[in-house]
Design a protein around this nucleic acid. Sequence first.
DNA 1: AACTTGACTTCCG
DNA 2: CCGGAAGCCAAGT
Length: 104
Amino acid sequence: MRQAFYQIVERIPHAKVVTYGQVAALAGFSGRARQVGFALAGMPEELDLPWHRVINAQGKVSPRKHTRFHEFQHVLLEQEGIVFVDGRIDLQKYRWDPAPEEID
DNA sequence: AACTTGACTTCCG
DNA sequence: CCGGAAGCCAAGT
């Protein structure tokens, strides 16, 4: 299950983002957005996934409770050229919209 | 085994 | 636009 999510996340192209719900759906687990977040929380760093390109449906980075990784995430996204407007990303513009064959 | 948590989403007021 | 509630379900207590 986590595998499926990782597989999707690792394909997110540079300067693009996807929502948790989208990752879940693409992985074949529609409706399990929370599990995506959970999977990423315990992600082995050696996989080196672009986890920062996964955001919530409101086009914002989801705030963590006990860490400041969301701030780091914000910076990483800007470094990729993604523009934040009022703390938000223009999903219409940056959302990754993969063709079925791009998913394996 | 019951209960709580949480990197979520959507609908309703 | 913001808060609450319901739906979701793996993990941790």
